[in-house]
Design a protein around this nucleic acid. Structure first.
Ligand SMILES: [Mn+2]
Ligand SMILES: [Mn+2]
Ligand SMILES: [Mn+2]
Ligand SMILES: [Mn+2]
Lengths: 218, 218
DNA sequence: ACCGTTTATTAGCCATGCCTAATCTTTTTT
DNA sequence: AAAAAAGATTAGGCATGGCTAATAAACGGT
């Protein structure tokens, strides 16, 4: 059995490996709001348990076993977020912290039953895919809104960074998963972007925001 | 914020105080599957936090603050059990361990929403009352089936000891919360009891079982 | 009233997970 | 190429929550 801290470290490594092919001590520490030295200690322990491969000074990767655990945690996290939003009526900006705790409840039967109860959802409230019980994730071809060009018409597929501030900002602009936007103009100066929703007036999104929106062709 | 271990100790003290007016180190240790010396350490810590009153060698009681916390934990535990049985379809003999973990998820909003989602249940799947958000428990006048006499007609109100074995035994006899029984005969020799359900043939219950059934007049 | 048994506490140890400060290594800048 | 900066690891310490063994207190039976 893994401790909560071990689980959180594995999940952090997994998350960082989505963007780069090695995860670094400093970034793990930042994600977990802890210190680099603590992370080094934990990486050593996880390496002994054969859950990560740690090349000191050169970063860390997950073993197959470690990745399977990470996927299970991601599954639990996103499943609980879905429950909280779809069943209990939480806002999508309110669920992250609670799911961060619930994901550590250890019971395979619980997650299987929850999965059925929720109707085997494929995506969480932030548009992120929910791995199935074998860890399989449905592949999608998405890109960041910030990489789109003038004239592109796109649908918001997911919000990649789960900070409540960003989610509330999207709420205030009426944006949600599934919203369709056309890119009117991209400003070279600050990377901001003018977009127009299907119905309603165009408005501007900062690069900070567009960078965190995953979109697919509409 | 309390740790999981602190919470479990407070809950154990609360549970023991239901039967006696002081809780003892040995019994707390037994309930938590830990050692008496570990309990002593924890009681000292909880006493410093003003959650218990500990008279060394003479047992421990809860302060008002401690009791409020215990009631909140009991509320969470029973609420999650209700969710697991009523919504996810778990058997009443399968939920204790999982609820033991879920009760430590700290979020008042979560429990309030869950309460509403479940329709403000007053009792958990074992017939135990669920404290309301202020810690109020609906009082009932119940007694152990083992104290009943020949001729008494009673309704099963709660199963006081939550061990899966007992629950499965009750399942096998077709007994559940709300079942009505009449006491046919009490055998002095072993304290066993012949009971007859509303419909069906009479059968015998050992004292071990009747001791753990809380009943009310039918 | 005493003695043995039960129960509780204390003393001392250990693993875990965190920290700061000191010491590498690697990378970047000059 | 050397110096500086950034990043990582190691060394050493601390709080938590366990444990066993030793000791102390309370209780029950004679
Ligand atoms: Mn977590
Ligand atoms: Mn999410
Ligand atoms: Mn618990
Ligand atoms: Mn219960």
């Amino acid at each position: 059995m893994l401790t909560r801290s071990e689980e959180d470290h594995i999940k952090a490594v997994y998350a960082l490996l989505q963007d780069n092919d090695s995860a670094f001590t400093k970034d793990i520490a930042e994600r977990l709001r802890t210190k680099a030295s603590s992370v080094t200690d934990m990486l050593k322990k996880l390496a002994e348990k054969k859950l990560v491969k740690h090349e000191p000074y050169y970063g860390v990767k997950l073993t197959a076993k470690g990745e399977a655990i990470a996927l299970q945690l991601v599954r639990r996290h996103r499943m609980w977020e879905t429950f909280l939003v779809n069943r209990l009526g939480f806002g999508w900006d309110e669920v992250h912290e609670v799911a961060e705790q619930m994901e550590h409840v250890a019971s395979d039967k619980l997650i299987d039953k929850l999965d059925a109860y929720l109707g085997h959802p494929s995506f969480d409230p932030h548009g992120d895919p929910i791995p199935d019980k074998h860890g399989k994730i449905r592949a999608r071809k998405t890109k960041r809104l910030s990489t789109c060009m003038q004239g592109d018409s796109v649908r918001i597929a997911a919000v990649s960074e789960t900070t409540d501030g960003l989610l509330r900002l999207l709420d205030s602009k009426g944006l949600r998963i599934g919203s369709v936007l056309s890119v009117q103009e991209v400003h070279a100066f600050d990377g901001s972007m003018d977009v127009k929703p299907k119905s309603g007036a165009a408005f501007s999104l900062s690069k900070d925001v567009s960078h965190h929106l995953q979109v697919e062709a509409a």
